[in-house]
């Protein structure tokens, strides 16, 4: 595979995917919720841009719709909802020091390598550079999971969840030029409903345990109390 032989637009796909991965690492280390939401919105923007480029490269007019949908949903609507929620929950100044930060970042790096290893057997495809994109998007999914494990704050967990969704979307766009439109609309609908439900749950959790720290959710377990 020689990257220099590819067209300029095709090369730009790699840059965008790599930037999206970088933003996942930024999300992982960022302490302030407000900044996390901004970073999440930027990741969504990269995704929308990438979808538009893929649409322009191939003959995929329906990808323009999904680029627009991504832009509206992930860059405008969901970040705006999250901003409004943290204002209402009075969390604008909330900072969370990540425990064992160095360890978490190392684990993140290990996950990227792991993702490459998982995708390694796919060799015979004529489009070998797609393998790169698939492994990077898998890495973004895994980093989203790591974020959810490492963070104790429900809003941060939700951002992790949504960035996982970004990774999945990236895989769909870059590897297969998007899913069929009906599936894509369905997924967008699910994400939207999930975002609304998360908002509702923030208030339920705060009302029932007076905090948004998931470490306090310990009433149900198999341990003897």
């Amino acid at each position: 595979m020689n990257l220099a032989q590819l067209g300029l637009l095709e090369q730009s796909i790699f840059v965008l995917v790599a930037l999206a991965l970088f933003l996942s690492f930024v999300l992982l280390s960022q302490a302030r919720l407000t900044t996390m939401i901004h970073v999440f919105a930027w990741q969504g923007f990269l995704l929308a841009l990438l979808t538009a480029i893929v649409a322009a490269l191939g003959d995929n007019p329906h990808l323009y719709i999904s680029a627009l949908l991504t832009f509206l949903l992930k860059v405008l609507l969901i970040p705006a909802m999250l901003h409004r929620l943290i204002r209402r929950l009075e969390l604008e100044r909330h900072q969370e020091r990540l425990q064992k930060q160095a360890l978490v970042m190392m684990a993140g790096a290990a996950l990227v390598i792991f993702s490459y290893w998982v995708v390694l057997p796919i060799t015979h495809m004529e489009l070998a550079h797609i393998r790169n994109v698939v492994s990077l998007s898998l890495a973004i999914v895994q980093l989203g999971m790591l974020l959810m494990v490492a963070r104790r704050q429900v809003v941060a967990q939700v951002i992790g969840f949504m960035s996982m969704e970004n990774g999945l979307f990236l895989a769909a766009v870059a590897a297969t030029a998007g899913m069929p439109l009906v599936v894509e609309l369905g997924i967008a609908f699910d994400v939207l409903v999930a975002a609304v439900l998360f908002g509702v749950f923030f208030f339920h959790i705060r009302d029932s345990i007076d905090t948004l720290d998931v470490d306090q959710l310990t009433r149900l377990s198999e341990e003897e109390r």
């Binding site: 967990q157 969704e165 999945l168 997924i187 959790i205």
Partner: peptide
Amino acid sequence: RTPEAVEAAWKYFILCGVGIAQALF
């Protein structure tokens, strides 16, 4: 809306959401 019910629902939401994301991949 008891604390237990909210906790159960949150766990259900997060675990199944993360799980099902793997299925989408």
